[in-house]
């Protein structure tokens, strides 16, 4: 069975008086170790799909089976545990806690999950920072880091709990092209180590590096492209 199996997903938002169909009968499967790019213009529903697969949002209809567990029917506790220990999120705007150091940001999933003691957390946090090449910036606050460094801290945070999957929503959106490629290279390296990777992007250069590309428009999957 596929690692992620979404079928018949529907999700409608009400914005003012208008109903927006973010997901309209979307079905998609993701195999273990896959690298998928979900592309589409803004407002197409690609972020909603990522949020649903990432357990941040739940669909109105349909099922999201991850390792046999249906996230569409899961309770807050299960969803939270899933977000905490099974997957890692990387956002366009980094979403680091500004008042915390890089290391504190990285170990925050361990703190929230109640994992390990202080020493173990520190060790795991430093290891994750080393993986993204930022162990020398552990004590810096996000404001003292460049955009690329911030995104790498965010990746280290996503990595710290040894997730099976990383979902990156426009990870290069706030970065210049050279820093963007560093980040994508970093993510690809993680994928090559066996982590399933889903990248939401509207950048064709980023999409081109994925094994599979899924096009989404007006809440519907319009096109699938095979592996590179």
């Amino acid at each position: 069975m596929a690692f992620v199996q979404c079928s018949g997903l529907r999700k409608t938002y009400t914005v003012g008086d208008e109903e927006v169909r973010a997901l309209d009968n979307v079905s998609i499967t993701v195999e273990k170790g896959d690298f998928i790019a979900i592309c589409g213009p803004s407002g197409s529903g690609k972020s909603t799909l990522a949020n649903v697969i990432g357990g941040l949002d739940q669909p109105d209809e349909g099922s999201v089976l991850v390792d046999g567990v249906d996230l569409a029917k899961a309770k807050d506790k299960e969803l939270s545990e899933y977000r905490n220990s099974r997957i890692g999120f990387v956002f366009q705007s980094f979403n680091l806690q500004a008042h915390e150091t890089a290391l504190e940001n990285v170990i925050s999933p361990l703190v929230i999950g109640g994992v390990g003691k202080k020493k173990e957390r520190r060790e795991r946090g430093m290891k994750a920072l080393e993986r993204v090449g930022l162990s020398d910036r552990a004590g810096h606050k996000p404001t003292q880091l460049s955009g690329g460094q911030r995104q790498r801290v965010a990746i280290a945070r996503a990595l710290v709990n040894d997730p099976q999957m990383i979902i990156a929503d426009e990870p290069t959106g706030n970065l210049d092209s050279s820093r963007g490629s560093d980040v994508i290279a970093e993510l690809r390296r993680l994928n090559s180590e066996g982590i399933t990777l889903i990248i939401i992007t509207h950048d064709p250069n980023v999409a081109a590096q994925a094994k599979r590309v899924v096009e989404i428009k007006d809440g519907k999957i319009t096109e699938r492209t095979g592996a590179r």
Partner: peptide
């Protein structure tokens, strides 16, 4: 952010 990285309600 806390919720995204796994904090329950």
């Amino acid at each position: 952010i806390m919720r995204a990285i796994g904090a329950t309600k």
